[in-house]
Simulated scan of single mutants.
Amino acid sequence: MLSTIERVTRKIAPGRAPSFTEAHVIKALKIIGGREAVGRIRLSKELELGEGVTRTLVKHLKNEGIIEVSRSGIVLSEYGEKLFSDLGSRISEGVEVPPSPLTVGPFNIAVLVRDAAGVVKMGLEQRDTAIKAGALGATTLIFSRNRLTMPSMEKIDVFKGISSIHEMLISKLNPKENDVIVIGSGENKRLAELGAKMAAFELLTRLASA
Rank of each mutant, 00 (worst) to 15 (best):
M153K: 11
I26E: 11
G34I: 03
V25H: 12
L112P: 02
G88H: 06
A130D: 10
R114W: 03
A28R: 07
A28N: 03
L207A: 08
L194R: 04
E167N: 15
G65C: 01
L112V: 10
I131V: 15
L124Y: 14
V75R: 13
S185P: 11
I66A: 08
L87N: 12
T103M: 12
L207Q: 15
G195P: 05
L124K: 13
T139Q: 07
I67Q: 03
F84A: 06
E177P: 08
R114A: 05
E202H: 14
L204P: 05
E6S: 14
K11P: 07
I66R: 03
A135Y: 08
A116C: 01
R90A: 14
N178H: 06
L112Q: 04
E93L: 10
E96I: 10
F84K: 11
F159P: 03
L61C: 09
G195V: 07
G52P: 01
A200T: 08
E193S: 15
T4W: 02
K132F: 13
M153C: 04
K11E: 13
T140F: 02
L47I: 03
V97D: 06
R206C: 04
L57P: 10
G50W: 06
N108F: 03
P98I: 03
S89H: 12
L83T: 09
A37N: 11
E51F: 02
V180W: 06
S77A: 07
A17H: 07
R10S: 13
G186P: 00
T4A: 07
K30V: 06
V104G: 15
G134L: 00
R16S: 11
E6H: 13
G105E: 10
S152W: 14
K197W: 12
T21L: 02
P18Q: 12
E68V: 14
E46Y: 01
A196L: 09
S171P: 01
R7I: 00
G80Y: 08
D86G: 13
T103K: 10
T139C: 12
K197D: 07
A133N: 01
G118I: 11
D157Q: 01
I66Q: 04
I91S: 09
T54W: 07
A192G: 13
T21V: 04
L141A: 09
T139G: 05
I91A: 05
F159S: 00
S77C: 09
F84E: 08
V8W: 06
K155A: 14
S70A: 03
G184P: 01
N146M: 09
P14N: 07
G34W: 01
I165H: 00
T21Q: 05
L87T: 11
A138V: 06
L47V: 12
R127Q: 08
R35C: 04
E78N: 12
S72T: 14
I162K: 04
K82V: 14
A13F: 12
L29C: 06
A117R: 06
A130Y: 05
I142G: 10
L102G: 06
E51C: 00
A17K: 02
L29E: 03
P18L: 14
P151W: 02
E125Y: 11
K197Q: 13
V95S: 08
G105F: 09
M150C: 09
N108C: 10
K197E: 11
